[in-house]
Amino acid sequence: MAKDMFKKYIWIVNKLYTTGGISYKELAKAWENSIQNDEGSTIPKRTFDDYRNAIENTFDLNISCDASDGYKYKLCDAESLRKDTVKSWLLNSFAVNNCIQESRRLKQRILFERIPSGNESLMRIIQAMQENKTIRLTYQSFHHSQPSTFPAEPYCVKVFKQRWYMVAHNPEKNCIGIYALDRIQRLELTDETFTFPETFDAEAYFRDSYGIMVTPEELDVETIRIKVSDKNNKRKYLRLLPLHHSQEETERHSDYSVFTYRLYPTYDFFQEILSHGGEVEVLSPEWIRKEFKELIEDMLRQYLP
């Protein structure tokens, strides 16, 4: 049920966004003819009003009704919506999915990466965040042989490399953890509520991280410099798709550039740098350069006779 409701919410937001404004009758008719409406349902006016309120509360959007323009419903401040990465991602993902669904003859010509399970948990986690409800989680960590069950207060969710993650506070251990949704074995909403801390800022929480690892207790934020060759247009690739928001091209030469980052030197960042092979070289700090040298030597030993 939650999944179906979420799909309708996104469809309505996308319709308001792409049309620039639409009347209730036009929207209801569009839903009746939409391929997303696989149940052949309708949207009565009272139901639409309920959806409108839920959308405003869930996505922090304002929807106005412009009486001077044929009583059309519009998204307020659509420009800020374009700049919001989460909302923009949701809308773009739905728009692409809707386009593909309506072009089924191209099904065999549009290929996607397989995304691990976890979407059902995502819907319930979002519901829990909306209502500030504690969830009961059964989770299988890679670091333990058996799953564990514990209460969790969901603070935020984040997607990274085709996987969804949840940041949640464990009240039993009084600590914050990061949990991959595809490793959740069971998730139940409880009747217990929690107070979301006003001091928690999801964007700030990950600001100094690459990916999903946040380790302020173990590591300090470092200024990391890497040398990127012009071979295979690698530096052009990084200019177009920065590895991190802190990326700066601090030196530019005829055949290479130096890029600088400010972040935690975590395992997932190391893996990303290694994935670029010999086209990327870590210059400093020296201890991180040494770490990479040891990693590369370990890799080389795998191939020596």
Score class of each variant (00 low, 15 high):
A180Q: 10
N37H: 06
I224H: 04
R289L: 08
T250M: 06
Y165A: 01
E286N: 12
K83T: 07
G21C: 01
W164T: 06
S88P: 00
R136H: 10
C65I: 01
N33F: 04
L304W: 05
L122V: 08
L241C: 07
A204I: 09
Y303E: 12
E248H: 12
E222K: 14
E188W: 05
C175D: 14
P265L: 00
K74M: 00
I43A: 01
S145P: 15
E297W: 03
E131R: 12
T18A: 03
E131G: 03
M123Q: 12
E218L: 10
S284F: 01
M123I: 08
F6K: 15
N233R: 09
K83M: 14
P44Q: 10
F292Q: 07
N62S: 12
Y267K: 04
T223K: 15
N98W: 03
F259R: 13
V157E: 01
L75I: 09
E281V: 12
N37P: 02
E251Q: 15
P116K: 04
Y256T: 03
H244T: 13
E79D: 15
R163V: 02
L283I: 13
T18V: 06
H253A: 14
E188V: 06
N53M: 09
A78N: 06
E248A: 09
E198P: 03
R186F: 08
L241H: 13
I296H: 04
Q108G: 14
S117N: 07
E203A: 08
L181D: 11
E32L: 04
Q271E: 11
Y24R: 00
F48E: 00
E188L: 08
E131Q: 12
E248I: 02
T223E: 14
K83A: 13
E272Y: 04
I115W: 03
D182Q: 09
K158R: 15
T266R: 07
S41V: 05
G177S: 10
V96G: 08
R301Y: 11
R82A: 06
R163W: 03
R225P: 12
N174R: 05
I55K: 02
Y179F: 14
D69R: 06
Q36H: 10
G70V: 00
L61V: 02
F6V: 06
K158T: 02
P147S: 10
E198S: 10
I115Q: 09
P151G: 14
E39V: 05
R183Q: 13
V228I: 10
R104S: 09
D66I: 11
E272K: 14
A30C: 01
N232W: 04
P242Y: 10
V214L: 05
I226S: 05
K107R: 09
L16C: 06
L181W: 10
S80A: 15
L122Q: 04
F206L: 04
T215M: 11
C99D: 12
